[in-house]
Simulated scan of single mutants.
Amino acid sequence: MTPEQVTLVKDSWEKVKPISEQAADLFYGRLFTLDPSLRSLFKGDMSEQGKKLMSTISLAVASLDRLETILPTVQALGRKHAVEYEVPESSYATVGEALIWTLGQGLGDDFTDDVKEAWVLTYTTLSEAMLSGTQAAA
């Protein structure tokens, strides 16, 4: 990622944080619309799950300019999702689609093509790291 793309992601995330509860609701609503079978992976309180999601994204966004420091944690998260939660690898594309859609909804006109491209690259980078952890668990 270029420094400009990191800045775009960080700046746009700051605009999402004040509406994080609504963003989480939008995300999970979209995710379950795209793939209703994923709903069964979530056993607990979805409000708490939404807070965890937003917290995890915040940590990842804050670490984008030193990505190498969080990649081992991201890979471990991928292993955990594979082993403990039995998350199918195919769901990563669906999650990415739901995330990008949610950001578009939350940011409105601020979700420019450049912002979208930066977020797609961010998600691709992190999901590939998670998937490498998933494959290590297999």
Rank of each mutant, 00 (worst) to 15 (best):
L8P: 00
G133I: 02
G96H: 04
T94E: 08
D25G: 09
P88V: 06
V9S: 00
S37E: 12
A138L: 12
L126Q: 00
V74I: 15
L103V: 03
E97C: 06
T94Q: 10
E48W: 09
S12A: 12
L67Y: 07
V115I: 09
A76N: 12
S55I: 08
S55A: 15
S132L: 08
A23D: 03
D113P: 07
P88H: 06
D110H: 14
A60P: 00
K17N: 11
P3D: 13
A76S: 13
A60Y: 01
S55V: 13
L131P: 00
H81K: 06
V6K: 02
R79L: 07
V16R: 00
Q135K: 15
F42C: 10
F42D: 10
T7P: 03
D109Y: 06
T33I: 13
D65S: 13
S40Q: 13
L121C: 09
A93C: 08
G29C: 09
L8C: 04
Q22K: 15
S40T: 13
K15H: 13
S90Y: 08
M54W: 04
Q49R: 04
A138K: 11
Y85L: 13
A98G: 04
P3S: 07
P36N: 12
G78N: 02
W13H: 05
V95P: 00
L121Q: 09
I57V: 15
K15S: 11
D110C: 08
S91N: 11
L67P: 00
V16S: 01
L131K: 14
Y28H: 10
V6F: 05
Q49S: 04
D45L: 05
A138P: 05
V87K: 03
G50F: 02
D109H: 12
L34N: 05
E21Q: 14
E117C: 10
T125N: 10
Q5T: 08
K52I: 14
L41Q: 10
L59P: 07
V74C: 06
Q49Y: 02
A136H: 09
E68S: 15
K80A: 10
V61L: 05
G108T: 02
T7A: 14
S90F: 06
L126V: 11
Q49L: 06
V61W: 00
Q22L: 14
E48Y: 08
F42V: 07
K15Y: 09
S132N: 10
S132Y: 03
E97S: 11
A23C: 14
D114I: 05
S12Y: 01
D114W: 03
E4Y: 07
V115W: 02
A23P: 01
D11Y: 10
T125G: 09
A129F: 01
Y85V: 11
D65K: 09
E68G: 11
A82R: 07
L103S: 01
A137V: 07
T134G: 04
V9R: 00
L34H: 04
S63M: 09
Q75S: 13
Y123S: 02
Y28E: 10
V95S: 00
I19S: 12
A24E: 01
M54Q: 03
W119G: 01
L53D: 02
D35E: 15
D35L: 06
E86A: 14
V74A: 04
P3H: 08
T7K: 12
S55G: 15
G50I: 02
V9F: 02
S91W: 03
K51L: 11
L77N: 03
V83R: 11
E128C: 06
Q75P: 03
P18V: 13
A98L: 03
T73S: 13
T56P: 04
A24Y: 00
G108V: 02
L107K: 02
A82T: 05
Q5P: 01
